[in-house]
Design a protein around this nucleic acid. Structure first.
Length: 478
RNA sequence: CGGGGUGUGGCGCAGAUGGGAGCGCGCGUGGUUCGGGACCACGAGGUCGCAGGUUCAAGUCCUGUCGCCCCGACCA
């Protein structure tokens, strides 16, 4: 362990100070820089490349499912924002307002979008007339602004990047199907691409989105035992449709309100990647999302033929993986540490000895296992290793999460676990907000979700002792 | 928004009781090196967060203000 620490002195050890560890990684791996605007971050090329990979996957999957991308204005007139009561109330404390255009005060102030429900609704009301116009499956990639009090790179910033889908449907059933379809897509993104295991479930009344009929969520667990809401999908029912007058005439000529959904994931997912997979040497990226999957480090590159061979390998590997060659004058050891810190899944070392033996050295980031491979085998072996890294990262993340998931039946147990063992706690709940609030006050945890996969831990609500209606995942959350 | 901490070259820091702006790393050039953060030589780089004030003199003292970090209350 002491040896490991020596590798990367720049990063604070996780168990010494988790928050500092996170900040160190974010900066040292060159994901972000702080900007001159409070709470706003500069996403640097390496960080943005991760986001682009998330976008690529999600965007193509959404399009396969029939969604279309649009772009809405970043400003919302105050009157428009106020049309749905719960919605405004939910967002009012964190909206930024534009009051002036040039030197002139605006007659109506404009809000910088914290989310675009109202804009989509306003637009849908105009373009929808008949059942033939439905469904509308719109998605938008943009940034939104929420005036947060406490900010942290990726996890909570004043401005953040996201994707927001807004769909309208003829029936409640279709809207519900869409809501769940997207939740499943998000879960797939997390598990299959980001190697982050998630719990799918429904938010309680207290935790649901402002103005929603029901909110569904995927919850993941970070290395420090805190939960992170990683994506949400909302069924609005016809609440917004009524507030905004989004109606269509059905086949019988009757006016009906549409049924609506909205859903989003944000750059927060990058924070999840860091906190689920990272270790004391830095970031650890699953191959499917890593901007660079293979880094080639030439050894004694000044010697005859080394750089030529490294370049040749780069070109070959480039046919099936995202590869980079670092031919800078830095020491090989320096490069090893640098790319470990940046979480590059696989390192390929090639030096004079290797060339002599027609081999290379491959080193995995996740396990640090070293493997000598014949140069003839790269096309076979590298994809295998990358796939294996992808799978085993998901497995170890799942194992860690399961180890940090506890069960409580009494309040004493509940409190004891919450105080001493950071992680998810499963406990039964009667469904009353009063109990939820009391649990927060007494135990110090919030409800994360009512998982789709329910378990019967006891007949009674852990708080009031009345009949239990749901098993709930509780925890401290980001 | 409350409590605590912090702000000095790019980064990490030192600068007791007011009077030379310094160190390590990094950066540039040249050379020797290269299988886990190399070494030597030379060199570039600073409105001491910002604004006032006290003083002959402020990185240092006083007031205000802003940013960042940590802990809480609110949130993707």
């Amino acid at each position: 362990m002491a040896k490991e620490k020596k590798f990367v002195e720049a990063i604070t050890a996780m168990d010494v100070d988790f928050a500092q560890w996170y900040t160190d990684i974010v900066k040292k791996a060159e994901l972000v820089d702080y900007s001159s605007v409070k709470g706003c971050m500069i996403i640097r090329p390496y960080g943005y490349a991760i986001w682009e990979n998330i976008q690529k996957y999600l965007d193509s999957r959404l399009k396969e499912l029939g969604h279309e991308n649009v772009y809405m204005p970043m400003f919302i007139p105050e009157s428009l924002l106020q049309k749905e009561k719960d919605h405004v109330e939910g967002f009012a404390p964190e909206v930024a307002w534009v009051t002036h255009g040039g030197h002139e005060e605006l007659t109506e102030r404009l809000c910088v979008r914290p989310t675009s429900e109202t804009l989509f609704c306003d637009h849908y009301a105009k373009i929808v007339q008949s059942y033939n116009d439905l469904p509308k499956l719109y998605n938008q990639w943009c940034s939104v602004v929420r005036w947060e009090k406490t900010t942290r790179p990726f996890l909570r910033t004043t401005e953040f990047l996201w994707q927001e889908g807004h769909t309208i449907h003829a029936t409640a059933e279709e809207a519900q199907e869409e809501t769940i379809r997207i939740l499943n897509l998000y879960a797939e993104l997390c598990e299959n691409v980001l190697a982050i295991p998630v719990i799918k479930g429904q938010k309680t009344e207290k935790e649901k989105f402002a103005g929603a009929h029901a909110t569904y969520t995927i919850e993941s667990l970070m290395h420090d035992g805190k939960a992170l809401q990683s994506g949400t999908s909302h069924n609005f029912g016809d609440g917004f449709a009524r507030a905004f007058g989004i109606q269509y005439s059905d086949k019988t000529g009757k006016q009906q309100y549409v049924h609506q959904t909205s859903w989003g994931v944000t750059t927060r997912l990058i924070g999840a990647l860091i906190m689920v997979h990272g270790d004391d040497s830095g970031l650890k990226l699953p191959p499917k999302i890593a901007p660079t999957q293979v880094i080639i480090v030439p050894i004694a590159q000044h010697k005859e033929g080394v750089l030529e061979k490294a370049t040749e390998l780069k070109n070959r590997i480039g046919n099936f993986a995202r590869v980079k060659l670092d031919s800078s004058d830095k020491m090989p050891g320096w490069k090893f540490n640098e790319y470990e810190m940046k979480g590059v899944p696989l390192r390929l070392e090639v030096g004079p000895k290797d060339i002599e033996n027609n081999q290379v050295v491959l080193v995995r980031r996740d396990t640090r296992e070293k493997e000598i491979v014949s140069m003839n085998e790269l096309e076979n072996r590298i994809p295998q290793i990358l796939e294996d890294i992808q799978n085993s990262m998901l497995e170890s993340a799942r194992k860690l999460r399961d180890e940090k998931t506890y069960t409580a039946v009494t309040m004493e147990e509940f409190k004891d676990i919450a105080d001493n063992k950071p992680g998810f706690i499963k406990a039964m709940w009667c469904g009353e907000t009063a109990c939820e609030e009391k649990i927060k006050e007494v135990v110090g945890v919030t409800s994360r979700c009512m998982p789709f996969e329910q378990e019967h831990l006891s007949d009674k609500c852990i708080c009031c002792g009345k009949e239990a209606k749901h098993m709930v995942y509780w925890g401290k959350a980001y």
